[in-house]
Amino acid sequence: MTRARSAPYEVGETDSGTTYVEPGDRAREVPVTFTGEVVQVGSGWDGVDADLAYLWARLPSGREVKALIRDVERVK
C-alpha cells in the first residue's frame, strides 16, 4: 500500500501566484498575479491529474480566485 501525498498548501496560509483561466474564458479574461489566503485545495492532487491540481484563494477584497498549485508559492 502506498502512502498518499498531501497537498503542499494548507487552508488558512497566505500564498501568491498567478490565477488560472479556463481555456473557454481566455478570450475575455487574462491571468493575474495575486496574494491571498488559501480557502480550498481542490481536486487533482495526490497524483490524479497532478498537472491540473488547483487551489482557491481569497483576496483581501473578498473575491476568490482559482490557481494551479504549480503556479503558487508560499508567502514567507
Rank of each mutant, 00 (worst) to 15 (best):
M1A: 12
T2G: 08
T2A: 10
T2I: 07
R3Q: 09
R3A: 13
R3T: 11
A4D: 09
A4L: 14
R5T: 09
S6A: 10
S6W: 00
A7G: 14
A7I: 04
P8N: 10
Y9E: 05
E10C: 07
E10L: 11
V11I: 15
V11M: 02
G12A: 06
G12V: 06
G12C: 01
G12Y: 06
E13S: 00
E13Q: 15
T14S: 09
D15W: 13
G17E: 10
G17H: 10
T18Y: 09
T19K: 05
T19V: 09
Y20P: 02
V21Y: 04
E22I: 01
E22N: 04
E22H: 15
E22P: 04
P23G: 02
P23Q: 05
G24S: 09
G24W: 13
D25Y: 15
D25A: 12
R26N: 00
A27M: 06
A27R: 14
R28G: 07
R28K: 10
V30Y: 03
V30N: 12
V30R: 15
V30P: 00
P31I: 10
P31W: 06
T33F: 00
T33E: 13
F34V: 01
F34H: 07
F34I: 05
F34E: 04
T35C: 05
G36M: 04
G36R: 07
G36H: 01
G36S: 00
G36I: 04
E37W: 00
E37T: 15
E37L: 00
V38K: 04
V39H: 03
Q40T: 12
V41C: 13
S43N: 12
S43G: 14
S43K: 15
G44P: 08
G44H: 06
G44W: 08
G44C: 06
G44L: 06
W45D: 06
W45M: 11
D46M: 07
G47C: 03
V48L: 11
V48A: 08
A50G: 07
D51L: 09
L52V: 03
L52A: 14
A53Y: 02
A53K: 04
A53D: 11
Y54A: 08
Y54E: 10
Y54N: 12
L55W: 12
L55Y: 09
L55N: 10
L55G: 15
W56L: 14
W56F: 12
R58A: 11
R58N: 05
L59Q: 14
P60A: 12
P60I: 08
P60E: 08
P60S: 07
S61F: 04
S61P: 01
S61E: 14
G62V: 03
E64Y: 03
V65M: 09
V65D: 10
V65S: 08
K66N: 05
A67Q: 10
A67H: 09
I69H: 05
I69T: 13
I69G: 03
I69K: 07
R70H: 11
R70G: 12
D71S: 13
D71K: 13
V72S: 03
V72E: 07
E73W: 09
E73L: 00
R74H: 13
V75I: 05
V75Q: 11
V75R: 12
V75M: 07
K76Q: 11
K76W: 02
K76F: 01
